[in-house]
């Protein structure tokens, strides 16, 4: 049945719930496009046959046309939904993605991510006075400037505003400026402790 490959792509993406990004299926996409090309060529042949009097073929042409549109829709939806997921990664992870995720992206998607990063950075510099405003900071309203954090894994040295460095070792506890460590908490390196 035509369209199965393209729907397979959509199905796999749909199954990966919660914004998870599955590997890019370049081969599946190529096969779906190949199928579309074949459908188009057969339709061209049948159109010329229908022009010379075989009107009973019109339905068949219409059927193939439906399949073409369906494949187009599946592929566009697949690519678009992946972009939505990649955009979400920028907000969840920050501007540098872990390697495991980068391996799941196609070259074009990496390119898109870099451009998105750039436009976001340009925008954030343009608002909020001279220094700009980091929109990814303070997703939840801050109550204090400093917060108590515990380190969940060995991270290494970490420099804070006043120039001192702290060693983030597993299970060590620190009292750090909130804006410095919010990103690390979101990345799962630190854990926010409420007193």
């Amino acid at each position: 049945m035509a369209g199965e490959r393209a729907v397979g792509l959509v199905r796999e993406l749909h199954r990966a719930a919660g914004g998870h990004l599955p590997p890019f299926r370049a081969e599946g996409l190529r096969q779906a496009l190949e199928e579309m090309r074949a459908l188009y060529e057969r339709n061209q042949a049948d159109v010329s046959e229908a022009k010379s009097g075989r009107t009973d073929l019109i339905f068949l042409i219409r059927f193939r046309h439906c399949c073409l549109l369906r494949n187009q829709r599946c592929i566009l939806a697949y690519l678009y939904d992946r972009l939505l997921r990649i955009r979400a990664l920028r907000w969840e992870y920050g501007s540098v993605l872990p390697n495991t995720i980068q391996f799941h992206m196609s070259a074009e998607e990496v390119e898109w991510f870099n451009r998105y990063k750039k436009s976001l950075a340009t925008y954030m510099r343009s608002v909020g006075g001279e220094e700009g405003l980091d929109l990814t900071q303070d997703i939840k309203p801050p109550k204090t400037l400093y917060i108590e954090v515990r380190c969940l894994r060995d991270y290494g040295e970490f420099e804070i505003d006043d120039g001192t460095t702290v060693l983030l070792k597993k299970n060590s506890q620190h009292f750090l400026p909130r804006w410095k460590c919010e990103q690390l908490i979101r990345q799962g390196v630190l854990e926010h402790i409420l007193s």
Binding site: G18, G19, H20, A88, L89, E92, Y93, P98, T100, I101, I139, K140, P141, K143, I147, E182, I185, R186, Q187, G188, E191, H192, L194
Partner: peptide
């Protein structure tokens, strides 16, 4: 429970972990 102001690891990160 007063945990609304706690910053938590992103659920996406947790899943990848």
């Amino acid at each position: 429970k007063g945990q609304a102001s706690q910053i938590t690891a992103s659920s996406l990160v947790q899943n990848y972990g």
